[in-house]
Design a protein around this nucleic acid. Structure first.
Lengths: 114, 114, 114, 114
DNA sequence: GTGGTCTAGACCACC
DNA sequence: GTGGTCTAGACCACA
């Protein structure tokens, strides 16, 4: 797995998992790999994976069954969608627009690509 | 001057300077303040300002006249614009589009706002 | 470790590392010592070592694995060789020749010693 | 006049003057320009030129007539030649050879160009 | 006055 | 443990 330089690996991992849930690749109540297994598969320290799982747990997206593993929460999709949409509309979109104008890029050019 | 917590101060400083050059507030061949002066004015250690200037120098946006100070390079605007545009089209835009689709947001909704 | 007075320590450190890579003493994908460790071993402040590593990174000779350390890039040798050769042929050699002529030194004398 | 980045300007100036004396362009007992005049002609601060003259004076290459100006010493050529030759044979040549070998450059290639 | 280098020591995020 | 950033303060060469 390849990581963006400017973002903590653990965040990139949790985002990847969120996206898999959104896309339906992973479904509610599915078990996700153990930190050790997942870490090995993507070449990352288990501690780092653990941190991702902790974040997802704190957000209510996955939950832990002690001694068994981590599972996707039943409301995971909704939580992810809601949080992401809000952030997208309130933060990412305005930043995107501001930047586009600053660089003098033609909006209609962008629209074609959307 | 206020700084974003999640970004190194020295980067924020160099970005501020780049933006001032883009906006025309500072022009090619203008001298920019000495590291000490600028540091004092924004309440930051001169070493930190130095780092900003080093980055801008590495990018070809400013240059140094020994014993005199730093000056805006003649091609500064072009360098900044080109670099920013490239990053926008190759990185920010694709990420934006991908995210929009993932969240199931209607492109035409976005287009209206651009 | 001993340092030349007229040259920044951090440059001497990065040159030393480059030479070790060239000589094969350190190989591609080898880890190099942490800034703290290396600093302690040569009696230099970690920040100074850090600066050397930053320069080598900028040159593409080493790269960083976050939280783990710095590693020699796979193409390190080629980068170093190419850069050094270019500088030699384009700068050092012409300066040498010019100086030789200026001082009225017989080229054939020099050739014998090469 | 253009200056090398890595060398103090005042040294580059004194070397230029030495070379002009060596080449015969300037002869013993010739007057050289005033610091102000020379500084203006090459776009450098008079203080910097002054420093060059001080160095040349210390080396016995030029001398000062108070209120009149600086003049090339009668033995200037000899002084320059002797010092330069010694440094060339003892320092520059060995460094050049060492570097050539380190880079794996063929001596015969160099010989052709001398 | 200018930048450039270096040290010492701190704090933090990340792995 | 790793690097990365920042501060404070020093010293120096250069213009």
């Amino acid at each position: 797995m390849e990581f963006n330089e400017n973002k903590p690996i653990y965040l990139q991992i949790s985002e990847t998992i969120s996206e898999r849930i959104l896309s339906g690749e992973v479904k509610p109540e599915d078990r996700i790999p153990s930190v050790r297994e997942y870490g090995a598969s993507i070449g990352v320290n288990p501690n780092t994976v653990m941190r991702s799982y902790e974040k997802l747990t704190a957000d209510g997206i996955i939950y832990n069954k002690r001694g068994i593993g981590y599972f996707v929460a039943s409301g995971a999709r909704e939580i992810i969608l809601e949080g992401s949409r809000r952030r997208f509309m309130e933060e990412e979109l305005p930043a995107f627009i501001r930047r586009m104008h600053l660089l003098g890029i033609d909006p209609s050019e962008i629209c074609k690509q959307l």
